[in-house]
């Protein structure tokens, strides 16, 4: 095994283990905190894939914003009682079987993929000379301008929706 492969093995094992921890914790706060650790690992994996910008927003948006939102909600709902009850549904074995089936089928599909498209011209050297952020910015504001604008609209809807949903009804 080469060094990169060893690094990957570490990340693969820890990400899988952390994922299992996240979905099995009884206390949601613990689950969210393990998720935080998981996100940091994924961010590092992005670095490994020459995607510095993604690593940054993974930490900033996921860990910094979304998980904090989760923690807020957990605290607001104040679910002390819930912790004493069972954490899984009665049908959890079926879910387990289904998830196992997913894993097996997906791996089977993905292993079968042998034909890949022609590599693009964003080689690693180009990325490194021009800078990851610069390239993403250029592409995002030219080729993908419309999806980008639509995303901003989605965020606007989310803002308004969240305000409307949580607002107290005025009689």
């Amino acid at each position: 095994m080469t060094l990169p492969q060893l690094f990957f093995a570490y990340f693969a094992v820890s990400i899988t283990g952390l994922s299992l921890l996240v979905v099995t914790r009884k206390n949601p706060v613990h689950g969210v905190l393990w998720m935080l650790v998981l996100f940091v690992h994924i961010a590092m994996l992005y670095l490994f894939l020459n995607a510095e910008f993604l690593a940054a927003i993974q930490i900033i948006i996921y860990a910094g914003a979304i998980l904090v939102l989760f923690l807020f909600v957990v605290m607001l709902l104040n679910l002390r009682v819930e912790e004493t009850e069972r954490r899984f549904q009665w049908s959890w074995p079926v879910g387990l079987v289904a998830a196992g089936g997913y894993a097996v089928s997906l791996i089977f599909i993905l292993v079968k993929i042998t034909v890949f498209p022609q590599p693009g011209h964003y080689t690693i050297e180009k990325m490194q000379t021009e800078g990851n952020l610069m390239i993403i910015g250029k592409v995002l504001y030219t080729k993908y301008l419309l999806p980008f604008e639509i995303t901003s609209l989605i965020l606007l809807v989310a803002i308004i929706g969240a305000v409307v949903l949580t607002k107290k009804k005025q009689e």
Partner: peptide, 22 residues
């Protein structure tokens, strides 16, 4: 494969957990 495994674990959590936050 890593992606597939993590996805399956996500599915597992989605199907098993009772707590909506989870």
């Amino acid at each position: 494969m890593l992606s597939a495994v993590v996805f399956s674990i996500g599915v597992l959590g989605f199907l098993m957990r009772r707590n909506l936050i989870m």
